[in-house]
Design a protein around this nucleic acid. Structure first.
Lengths: 343, 343
DNA sequence: CTGTTAGCGCATTCAA
DNA sequence: TTGAATGCGCTAACAG
């Protein structure tokens, strides 16, 4: 049971003071190259790694980033085991980015709807003292949270949020993506393309609807409100919306759904009505979680750059803490479209 | 920008000393109920939450658990986006269990095959000072890691490891599961059931093979080595094994694969050979990641209690740190079988 | 039962 | 360019 090696041991080994070692560790100025090398040698010889707890206590960075996800949605995704891989992609982008800078990302589940959101967030921050917070939808646009963060002087990034405001806004161009999805269908000759919206709680829902409308009117097609189904990202709401469409006399021949669950619902309903996909009705999905790849037929989908957005968030937060100024307050990442057999 | 509230403020508010507050926080003994209540009131009034960094510096717990996953496998799973939800299930079980005790779980990716595994693990531990470490396969049986942990006096749990040894071994009964999968096929009337093994690097691979053999001989069927295909958990190895089976004169009518990837490979090969599943050949898979549910036909699979194992690991580690003695060194969790259309 | 003292490992003042 | 002091928020060991 070796005792842990501290900065003191390194100082003794290198024959310098505590402070000099600290300077070398943090790449501080005013250290001769020779001394720097000597300290570095001692560090690697002893296998010294600074304790982040002590670093924080010393009044510096905590090397921790806190990622806040919605509790219910996240747990539900895990429990269903349907491979809703939002969290995986966040980890992929965020963790790897953090690792590069010696940071760690800690996950926390928070209930947006709870009356004590503030207490929950406050508690997590007080306990961890992170250097920054990464907000994901729907937290990204929850003023209870963003205002608290501002009050605490805690840097944060809002993923999936386009509106300028406090914190770093990082999103893909949802409007352009919806327009692209719609245009794709229009290009395939569809004239009546319907759209299933997401929950209003998410700012991106509005953006996607706007994109759809824009693409439709760009072709000079009428703006038919009957072609817009209100959903809330749940499978059930997708079923309802799709059944509404199929009950119409002049029913749509193509559907754009604001997320995968609703797209799968639309697919299910279509098949149950004896319709063939994509012959009778084409479907485009948003998000591209694994499930849509394994649907029959596999769904064409807008691919969200979740890993990229999280990586960007981590990078910005880390740089901000390092004192980097003039960082972009808004970051728009490119989306992709995965064409599969549903169109 | 409110200044953070510390134990001092609480002490002042309650009119007691620092130490008394600390006692109340940690549920220590020797505090009158009246004082306890007074302190509790001050805590909630001020919204005080102890800083885990400071708690650790004070020589107590760090309230952190470190989960080590294999870097390549994990990243590959995320990148492929196939919804290999091992990590999700770990988070589901581990995070929720941790949250109950005021703990956090931090993920770290480590390359088992690297020559500097020890350095990587050492560094993570030195930086974080976790109260315990959760090892997942293949780390669970990597002596480089386990021995290092023992030397450091760091409590740890080995998930997917049945052998007694240092640390808490937590696993499902892989042998019984493989036997159950095989028996299921035997019950369906199959006489020639083949088995695709996993990589020898994983202790559970041997256990699964044993279970298969046991089930076969329990029926008095011959122990035919030709029915055992060597795999390594990759899709490609599954293809090779399956093609070997199909080239046989007296080919098997049922397959048990040691993981989902290889089962999917077997399915693919079977279909390509014009065989019908399950009529011509039945398939049972291990792991039950989301993809097998969306295969056509959906595969019958052994369901691993990943969330349960991680939760158990967290619980044991937390209790151990709390001073709980006689905790079980081996924990076996029940598995389940999800019967679907492939059998 | 409660308060006082002395660190934990580090970074941030200051001096030299 | 370096070193010595001071304090971060907390707990353990000791007193009272």
């Amino acid at each position: 049971m070796r005792r842990p090696v501290t900065i003191k041991h390194v100082a003794a080994e290198a024959g310098v003071s505590l402070q000099t070692v600290s300077r070398v560790i943090n790449n501080g100025p005013n250290v001769r190259q020779e001394v720097r090398d000597r300290v570095a040698a001692a560090v690697s010889k002893l296998g010294y790694v600074p304790s982040i707890a002590a670093q924080r206590m010393g009044g510096s960075r905590s090397y921790l980033l806190l990622a806040l996800n919605d509790r219910d949605r996240t747990i539900e995704g895990w429990r269903s085991g349907e491979g809703a891989d939002w969290v995986d992609q966040m980890l992929l982008g965020g963790m790897l980015q953090c690792a590069e800078a010696g940071y760690r990302m800690i996950f926390e589940l928070v209930d947006t709807h709870s009356s004590h959101v503030e207490r929950e967030v406050q508690a997590a921050i007080s306990a961890l003292h992170p250097d920054g917070v990464i907000l994901t939808p729907p937290h990204s646009d929850n003023p209870m949270i963003t205002e608290l963060l501002v009050r605490m002087g805690m840097p944060f990034a809002r993923i999936g949020s386009m509106e300028a405001g406090e914190g770093f806004a990082i999103a893909m161009d949802d409007q352009a993506a919806a327009a692209a999805a719609t245009s794709l269908l229009l290009d395939h000759g569809h004239r009546r393309v319907a759209f299933i919206t997401g929950s209003d709680e998410y700012a991106l829902s509005g953006a996607r609807l706007d994109g759809y409308r824009q693409a439709v009117s760009a072709r000079g097609l009428p703006d038919d409100d009957a072609l817009i189904g209100r959903g809330d990202f749940t499978f059930a709401s997708g079923v309802t919306a799709m059944e509404g469409f199929l009950a119409m006399a002049d029913r749509p021949t193509a559907i754009v759904a604001s997320n995968d669950q609703m797209a799968l619902a639309a697919l299910r309903v279509a098949l149950r009505h004896g319709l063939k996909v994509p012959q009778d009705v084409a479907i485009v999905s948003f998000d591209d979680t694994p499930i849509v790849r394994f649907a029959s037929p596999p769904l064409t989908a807008i691919v969200q750059p979740i890993a990229g957005m999280t990586a960007a968030a981590a990078r910005l937060l880390i740089r901000a803490k390092a004192g980097d100024a003039d960082l972009p307050l808004q970051t728009i990442l490119p989306f992709a479209i995965a064409e599969r057999e549903s169109t």
